[in-house]
């Protein structure tokens, strides 16, 4: 993958495959601690500890051993985080969901760029109109804290019977995410 937001798109797709109803996406840019943290949390089927282990380590294993519906995306994400001096953690509970956290040192030259976070989020939201997404972006440095929240539940409440993938709504969500990304300095990270 060329950037972190493509990994996020892939991980969100895993949550969908795990029958999630709500997916929470957090991107936290902490300049003070030199850390870019991404968290994807779902309320899907979850995994037992054995499956969880295999889902992360299957990079060099055979196709047959790979966890069904997960594939190579997670080991690649883990590898990219760790190679850039970051960290990667996954926690899961069968029947409750999965939380995936990837940390990247902001100043590491080997770090992937964050990339086009807006298109990752827009595609995920519109591509799965039956799911709810809760987005939280946070930027922090010594002087300030900037934050952006977006929840499809709130949008749905306003829209009533109009679906999220109605053309004008797509534009609204696209523009809202764009403004949120600008506001929290998530462009060109």
């Amino acid at each position: 993958m060329q950037d972190i937001s493509l990994h996020l798109l892939d991980v969100i797709q895993n949550s969908v495959s795990a029958s999630a109803k709500c997916v929470k996406v957090r991107v936290l840019q902490n300049v003070v601690e030199n850390r870019l943290r991404t968290i994807v949390e779902d309320d899907g089927t979850g995994m037992d500890s054995h499956t969880l282990q295999k889902a992360q380590d299957s990079l060099y294993s055979t196709k047959k051993e790979q966890v069904k519906n997960v594939g190579l995306g997670i080991p690649l994400f883990k590898q990219n985080a760790e190679q850039a001096g970051g960290a990667f953690r996954m926690a899961s509970e069968l029947g409750h969901g999965t939380v995936l956290t990837a940390d990247f040192p902001l100043d590491n030259l080997d770090r992937l760029p964050l990339g086009n976070l807006k298109d990752t989020l827009l595609n995920s939201i519109i591509g799965h109109p039956q799911l709810d997404f809760n987005i939280h972006l946070l930027y922090r440095d010594n002087a300030k804290e900037l934050c952006f929240n977006f929840d499809t539940k709130e949008v749905r409440e306003e829209l009533g019977e109009i679906p999220l993938n109605y053309p004008d709504v797509i534009e609204y969500i696209d523009q809202t995410l764009y403004e949120g990304i600008q506001k929290t300095n998530m462009e060109d990270v």
Binding site: L6, L9, Q13, N14, V16, S17, N69, N116, D119, T120, L122, N123, S124, I126, G127, H128, P129, N165, Y166, P167, D168, I170, E171, D174
Partner: peptide
């Protein structure tokens, strides 16, 4: 695929194609 999907969404919004649904699958 992300850019392809984004293009479909843009075209649909631009042309106001209210009877076209774009979704994604893994």
């Amino acid at each position: 695929a992300r850019e392809v999907m984004k293009t479909f969404l843009e075209e649909i919004a631009e042309r106001n194609l209210t009877d076209v649904l774009v979704t994604q699958t893994a």
